[in-house]
């Protein structure tokens, strides 16, 4: 027997899927909406060029989350950003350092790098070798990233994924290096957002990180899902507002 909660969740999911397919199709037909500018994505687009110009490296952290549990959507958002950066890396023959806390994410990141290099087998092997699994322990992962930031000559630091309090250790380590490091960071948890605010001026707040595919690659499905999210958000907002008014006027018990 399906409960009311399960039924409403199912209806919301079907509605969401329909909206994604509808808006994706519209985008494919050329009706691409104007996306509001997000400064962090503009910085991210120029980060690889900045690293190449300065002769230094780019570090990409995919967070402490995994792919089967512990905020997989955040990790997938990080992998989407990596996909964009890996293509830039392949075009410029540079190899960014990628760190992960989950071994399965390490394999996906290696796959993403190989994908970007296409027929260039040598480049693909070289770039995949720069994907480093550090540790599944959050503190140990943070220590490893702090090591990478201080030992390797890093110019740009991209941190998109799932983070907890350990973010501050890494974000602040990037700030305290003698040579300035540009950090683009994203986190979903409201507890971590103040740390982002304090450590970087190029932050992606909460849901903005899931828009990476729409902003960086202009993928129709990503733009479609972004529009679907906005539509559902408006719907929920109106629903909440009407509920509050009905409650205030004593219509609802």
């Amino acid at each position: 027997m399906v409960s009311l909660t399960q039924l409403s969740a199912l209806i919301l999911l079907i509605f969401f899927v329909t909206l994604i397919l509808f808006f994706s199709n519209r985008t494919r037909q050329g009706r691409v909406p104007a996306l509001r500018p997000i400064a962090a994505f503009s910085t991210l687009k120029g980060l690889m060029a900045q690293a190449i110009e300065s002769g230094r490296k780019l570090h990409i952290s995919l967070g402490t989350g995994g792919i089967t549990q512990n905020a997989p959507a955040d990790t997938l958002a990080g992998l989407t950003a990596l996909e964009y950066l890996s293509r830039q890396a392949a075009a410029s023959k540079t190899t960014p350092i990628i760190t992960t806390a989950d071994p399965a994410v390490m394999l996906l990141a290696q796959n993403t790098m190989r994908k970007a290099y296409g027929p260039d087998k040598e480049g693909a092997v070289k770039s995949a070798a720069q994907v480093r699994w550090i540790s599944p322990e959050k503190a140990a992962y943070a220590a490893g990233v702090m090591g990478v930031l201080s030992i390797e000559d890093i110019a740009g630091n991209v941190m998109i994924g799932n983070y907890g309090d350990e973010y501050l250790l890494m974000g602040e380590a990037a700030q305290q290096q003698a040579k300035p490091i540009t950090t683009v960071a994203a986190a979903a948890g409201p507890d971590v957002l103040p740390f982002l605010f304090a450590t970087t001026s190029h932050a992606l707040w909460g849901e903005e990180m899931y828009a990476a595919g729409a902003y960086l690659d202009r993928k129709p499905t990503h733009i479609g899902s972004l529009l679907a999210q906005d539509t559902v958000r408006w719907g929920l907002g109106i629903f909440i507002l009407i509920s509050v008014l009905l409650k205030a006027f004593g219509v609802l018990p």
Binding site: V17, A77, S225
Partner: peptide
């Protein structure tokens, strides 16, 4: 923020289920 994150998470999951994202 949590509402936005929840919707973003659902959208990301659905894209994988629809085969649009294939890491």
């Amino acid at each position: 923020i949590l509402l936005g994150v929840s919707l973003g998470t659902i959208a990301t999951g659905l894209r994988v289920l629809l085969g649009a994202d294939r890491p």
